[in-house]
Write a protein that binds this DNA or RNA. Sequence first.
DNA 1: GCAACCAGTTGCAAAAAGCAACTGGTTTTG
DNA 2: CAAAACCAGTTGCTTTTTGCAACTGGTTGC
Lengths: 177, 177
Amino acid sequence: MTDDPRSGCPINLTLEVVGDKWSLLIIRDMMFGNRRHFRELLLHSKEGISSNILADRLKTLLDQGIITRSDDPSHKQKVTYSLTEKGIGLLPALAQMSCWGLKFLPVSEELSIRAELLAEGGPALWEEFMDELRESHLGQPNPRRANPGWLSVGTRLRAAYDSVVARKAAEALADAS
Amino acid sequence: MTDDPRSGCPINLTLEVVGDKWSLLIIRDMMFGNRRHFRELLLHSKEGISSNILADRLKTLLDQGIITRSDDPSHKQKVTYSLTEKGIGLLPALAQMSCWGLKFLPVSEELSIRAELLAEGGPALWEEFMDELRESHLGQPNPRRANPGWLSVGTRLRAAYDSVVARKAAEALADAS
DNA sequence: GCAACCAGTTGCAAAAAGCAACTGGTTTTG
DNA sequence: CAAAACCAGTTGCTTTTTGCAACTGGTTGC
């Protein structure tokens, strides 16, 4: 945890903090899947993280100031995890990894639609999404919300994903008949 | 190696390929440090990778098509590692991680200068640097080389780093007197 | 009062990382 | 021409991390 870093290189330091197979997936789920509770992160994880690993990673993300932990007023045992500005700042790195995966790896169709939108939108879209995360995780009012016809990036990403899932379900039904 | 992926999510697939503590550091050294041989990667690594880990990572990067391996004509035992287009494509992700580290982590002064230049230059500079990597690793002619007064990004990064190192050495000398 | 839900913890086996010494060969050097 | 340095790794071993499954102590809704 408080081990000496192997070097002061920014890339190395970043890898020492989030360079494992799970931390960035947890952050991804908090960002794109809007998961804020332990059970949500545990059970809706597409990759099947185990509870001890999740607990451990949440602790180190907490220690690193990437997320915060607060009581949920609706339930005495429930806690809410939120991204900090530092955590939200990881979005561009995550988006670039998403773009690279989309371009060079065998991504599944329903999960690639989000990556395509992120790639097309580019840094401008990422900034917009970061403002939405600042709203939902930090309580900062989102200036864009006032624009007429405004549709959040989160909503657009989810809608695109849902439409692909629906289309694939319809195709499967057609194939079966 | 050929294990089933945990999910088809582009971010997850990317993490399964380069989401460990060493792979991206090796790629960083190949990109920014121009290290092309096993011994260079082993001995000039600021983080002190061990030879079995290096050998293992080079093998998986090879299997993944991120690097290639070729004989060096100058020495029968020497091999040269080169980045592929897929490997070069990791630069923007690496640059974003560098930016995040610079902003939120305690980076050392001499290593932060490169990160600052990468952050200031933004995606346009990254593209320019990728063209230089295509030249040195893939043998593709670099169109920018024809421009009058052209100075490569690699040269500029190295010059900036060297000047900080020189300044710090001079300061240390002044302090000692 | 009982079942479902809440955030984790515990114990153990398997996999991965890390360390130091070593291999078999090639090129340089005195 | 022999010794030293260099080349890309490999081997054996210990330590650390990961992964799985079951479990804990408590809260809430029915």
